[in-house]
Design a protein around this nucleic acid. Structure first.
Lengths: 193, 193, 193, 193
DNA sequence: GATGAATGAGAGTTCATTCAT
DNA sequence: CATGAATGAACTCTCATTCAT
């Protein structure tokens, strides 16, 4: 009995530490970028020693990877893919894709940095997958490889404008967001023909 | 006469070294990115000692800046802005903007890295300026601040797809280039209304 | 109880290292002077890697500063300012000021170097303060700014003869020390009028 | 004829270059101190290339040495040792020694730096010799080795207060100069007994 | 003589990672 | 688990001096 309980407690504490460390990593990655970020700075921010950090993560990259996982999960939760299929107008689909993505990127300070960092391909891949599936649902006839290409391009466009959007606020942010949607709509209408 | 030749001879060696060093920097920046690139690696690649590098460039940044200047010049030479004005179809304009840019980016291995590096804003600024002027010539009625926004977005889209294009070759590169042009055409047509 | 001991154990090793490093710094500063001294030499002398040095001191200057603090403390301990006030003859006061200072400078090999180095103004300031207070105690009527001037001059005289005294030994050192005291006595008698 | 004239011209040009370089060295030594001063900085200040500098001076030290020679000569010229002997009051002697020394130190910006720099012992030695001879003239009965000691101490006191005097101006400088003279008079009166 | 390019060892400092405790 | 001391290679940049021209 005790044998089964103890490990759980440990795991719980471990989970807490990991979350704590990831929060710290998020902050530091957001502030300095992946490369300039220092594991020592992350440890300090988390209020632990560098050694502790390496008890939970084998290296700096792995922290980025796990952070990216967080963001993938958050995106998955936000993009409840209900009813993206049939008669929903393209504008609405774009809204339902773009707005939550921007929101999540805004909430998670390191989203942007992780989106670019090489060790976080998963994040880009996940987003691309989302878009790919959405297109598949709306335009089933499309050739899969062409669909993949379009999805990739779409995500890159999003990526290209995201930093500017996040850096802006108020009117400017709205303007830039509008422009992003305009690009996507124009492009996606064009390729739907 | 001799008075004008003599100093030239000295400068000539220096100019050669500078070019040599910039070539080396280009190679190393392209391979490792601006941050990861080391001045020692550049010096070794150029076949000189680190001290020599610092005889011509005050620091690492300045090499990036000068490289970016090179690219700006190359772009300026390529974008002879003749006849972009009146009756030229949009497709042609896009071709004449995109193709040389991709060609130059392909010829200069560090173009992409410099396009992203902070100390090289000039490069992005120059390209954005080019686009802005082109739009101004074609759609004189457009509000300048809106025009600037469109130019910025256009360049960011180019930036977003450039790495993929450069990484690809043959059929894949042609496909991606086509997609880039499609995006731009769709967007620019949309905003011209 | 254990709670107070455990952290101490960790700090203990660190404290030992700091002392070790300061000892090494003292040796190297004494041998080469502050500017010529290298952090690597200090690390080697201390038998640690350069990185370890920077775990305890943020930079070279800080080592000098801490060394100077050591000396200030040693001086404060030596100059028990008892009975410097009333009827003590000037010669005795000078003995009680100069002798411990010379002894401490002799014991701490870098004293002289630190006395001169810019990042160690504290040391000179501390010594000047000591002298200033002593004068204040003996000649309360003296104008404070004039007193400060006299203290400064006194310390500079000490500083001027210290290297010669430390470099000498035996009879020569005694002679020079006597000369220093003679200068100080003559000067202080003169200004007491 | 030409054979004798040409070399003279050359020597003349060489002398000019040397003076030019020494002027530059003076400026740079005064600004940065001997150690921090850079031969390149000196060459730039002199408006020549580093190679030229090494055509006239074998190394950095030698520039300091020659500068010190300049100062020795200036001092020798200033201290016309007339009538320092017999009935001149001590105060006057001190004035005639200290005032020109301070004036020259003020006129030659690197005087102070050279006075301290190790490669310039000659300067200190020359000044000490002056003082020694003056004492010898005034107190012929004094034991030579004791005289030497007193001269050394005297010069060190001068050295100790010189920086403060040069850094000050107006009233403060006058005050400090007065204090220096007071110290010297008190000391020399004391040792004359 | 004069130039300025070239050298290269070495400066102070950083940081991802490991390890004894 | 947690600590924080320890590592050491690598970084950018400097500078007295030399050498080809």
């Amino acid at each position: 009995m005790a044998g089964t309980v103890k490990p759980r407690r440990r795991q719980a504490r471990g989970q807490r530490r990991m979350a704590q460390l990831l929060d710290a990593a998020e902050e530091v990655f957001a502030a300095d970028g992946f490369h300039a970020a220092t594991t020592n700075a992350i440890a300090v921010t988390a209020g632990v020693s560098p050694g502790t950090l390496y008890q939970f993560f084998p290296n700096k990259e792995s922290m980025a990877t796990e952070l990216a996982d967080r963001y993938v999960a958050a995106l998955a939760a936000a993009h409840a893919p209900d009813a993206l299929v049939a008669g929903v107008p393209l504008d609405d689909v774009i809204d339902r894709m773009v707005d939550p993505a921007i929101r999540i990127a805004g909430e998670h300070r390191a989203f942007e940095a992780m989106f670019r960092a090489q060790p976080c391909d998963q994040l880009r891949a996940a987003v691309t997958g989302n878009v790919d599936r959405t297109i598949a649902a709306r335009v089933p006839a499309l050739d899969p490889s062409r669909r993949r290409l379009i999805a990739t391009v779409t995500v890159r466009i999003f990526d290209a404008l995201l930093p500017a959007i996040l850096a802006a606020s108020g009117r400017a942010r709205a303007e830039l967001t509008g422009e992003l949607k305009r690009v996507l709509r124009a492009y996606l209408l064009d390729v739907s023909d």
